[in-house]
Amino acid sequence: MTARLMVHQINAALNELMAEDERIYVIGEDVLDPYGGAFKVTKGLSTRFPQRVLTTPISEAVIVGAATGMALRGLRPVCEIMFGDFLGLAFDQILNHATKYPLMYAQNVPCPITIRTPMGGRRGYGPTHSQSLEKYFVGIPGLEVTALHRFQPVQPFYRRALLDGDGPSLIIENKMMYGQTPLAHLKDGYDDFQLRRHGRDVVEAELSLTGFAHEDLTLITYGGMSDLCLSAAKQALIDFEISANVIILGNLSPLPLDVLTAACERTGRVLVVEEGTRAWGVGSEIVAQLTPRLWSRLKAAPARVACEAPVLPNSQALENEFLPSVADILQQMRALVTA
């Protein structure tokens, strides 16, 4: 399979890593060939590694629970949770088992379990197959949460979670992104943006239309809102002469605070954009962690764009109406600059 799209690159990364280290097991629902997973991320893996790709009953709690036991006993399991919405079924295993063992035993107990799951809407899947639920997980101590993006070199991203770390890790993959082309090969520019990356294996992408100078505000985003933020930044410059730098996060928890601080210090205005619901959200915590670091430089109160609907409607028209849009981002950008 050629690595044409993001989904193919994730698949290729899993292929390479499984070939390299036989402690890696893939465990999840419907992951065997010919089906190869609901989003085809695991396609071909069970044919190549028949002993190490385990298809399970519809039992998310035991997928994560068994993987935790495997990890405690020396393996490096990768769980696929078919839809991020189903992570709720495994919540206790993440909160009170996988992350707790290394912490509460206080004696360097490795628990290298990786959980990969797709989040996000815009595919018309409705209330229980479209959510962005990472906000419920970023607050779990001992859990590393990362979000894949198109500027991120894919193989090192998965290598770090699967092989380098010794603790539990949750990887958020955006559903729409699976079908998009990777942009990791781009060195320093994308479209009309200049591009730079921060970090080594898990990277933050920073994009600017004005050479990383003279920006009015900083957009901080991740996952499915990344493209919308880039569109908003472009339109803001053309239509309103507002210049923004855009940070696309790879690390959600812990946050890359130094990178964010440096980017926001230049502008003094911060807008966090997320697809999940607003209250107690990822954006809330980013603002809370950044504000004291930026206090003397802030020109306006940091603001957030998030999903305003308490539930995502099934209808595509309604979904588009309620998920954060380019117009929503633009409106907040203008409000911040004129504040």
Binding site: A61, V62, V64, G65, A66, A67, T68, G69, M70, A71, L72, R73, G74, L75, P77, D92, Q93, N96, H97, K100, Y101, M104, Y105, Q107, V109
Partner: peptide, 28 residues
Amino acid sequence: QHLHRDGFYSNGIQGGIVANAVGAALAE
């Protein structure tokens, strides 16, 4: 309720360890 030494693990949450034990057995 939360002890670990060599191959011994305990947890104060009801039921969850059963899944962990199954995974440990798979690893072994």
